[in-house]
């Protein structure tokens, strides 16, 4: 969550010039609802090459200590690039 509290903000309290006082507030916005398919990771097959991380347009591949641990389904739009680019077919796109 962001620190800047814009929920229910009154027009007179808005910053001048439509300035957004904090970076990265879009992370609060859910784009996962656009999806018709979601990625599922097969950890047995995954070699942690991180190509899925590199090619994800929505920064939705969660990497911890150099290993793919899952997907950020709040933001994943289900484009399928990760599954298509995976050299080991460790990612499958499954219906919602």
């Amino acid at each position: 969550m962001t620190k800047w509290n814009y929920k229910g903000i009154k027009a007179k309290d808005l910053p001048k010039g439509a300035v957004i006082p904090e970076g990265g507030t879009a992370a609060d916005y859910e784009t996962g609802g656009w999806r018709t398919k979601h990625p599922v990771l097969d950890k047995e097959k995954c070699i942690n090459c991180l190509f899925c991380y590199a090619f994800c347009p929505d920064s939705s591949v969660i990497v911890e200590n150099g290993k793919v641990v899952g997907f950020d389904l709040k933001h994943c739009k289900g484009c399928g690039i990760c599954a298509f680019e995976c050299p080991k077919d460790a990612i499958n796109m499954e219906d919602e």
Binding site: D28, Y29, R35, P57, D58, S60, V63, K77
Partner: peptide, 26 residues
């Protein structure tokens, strides 16, 4: 390396309204 890059927080946050599969955000 990708491992080094992935250890940092992305400077472009998710939640943008670019199309699914957009090349520009990559």
């Amino acid at each position: 390396t990708l491992k080094e890059l992935a250890a940092k927080e992305d400077k472009l946050s998710p939640g943008h309204r670019l199309c699914a599969g957009c090349g520009a955000s990559v």
